[in-house]
Amino acid sequence: MLHLSFLKQFTRLAIGSAKVQPLNSKNICTTAVLPFKISDQLWAEPMKKKKKMDPAIVKAREERRRKKIEKQIRRLEKNAKQLKPIDELEPPLHVLDNLNTRKRIPVVLSPAEVEARALLNKEWCRYKRQEYMANVAQVDRIMRAQKRALDQLYEVSEDLYNEAIMPDLQLIPYSIVGPYATPPIKNYDSPDGEYIDVSKKWGN
């Protein structure tokens, strides 16, 4: 550093004589420093000139931004109260329009028919109760079998018992499919229907 500034000093001194000489002249110079020029060190980019803005425009811009945010907040608040409608639960308008033409002629049941229906309902009730009781008994039986197996295991070895009653985390989450009404057709190439996504976007 020092050395450079030292040189600079000399250049300054030399410039005066250099200017006098024409540039293209082949000069044999006595001062070795003459062809070198050292620019000032700045250590940073030169400062840009600050643009002066109209304070009114700045104010307006600020205002606009604030309004935009306010609007967003208002919309969010409004949506918070508004629940997402379930289209399936609302009767379609074209059905509501001609509701009267869609009504069927009310069926008049004979007393015998009414009686038969009531009896069938009762029979069904009894059947379902039986089924339920059988199910409960079945679950009891299966649980009893497992209890017995675990008790026997405890007698054989406590370590094995402790391992056996550990929860099986691989089972969670558990999902199961079937049974179906008809068996699957092997190698069936299912025809693809057209798929149009009509779901609406909610929120924001």
């Binding site: 197996a149 550990m166 089972l171």
Partner: peptide, 12 residues
């Protein structure tokens, strides 16, 4: 798919 770590039945 095994459904449990515990045995479900016993026979001797």
């Amino acid at each position: 798919d095994f459904l449990s770590n515990a045995p479900c039945g016993f026979y001797k």
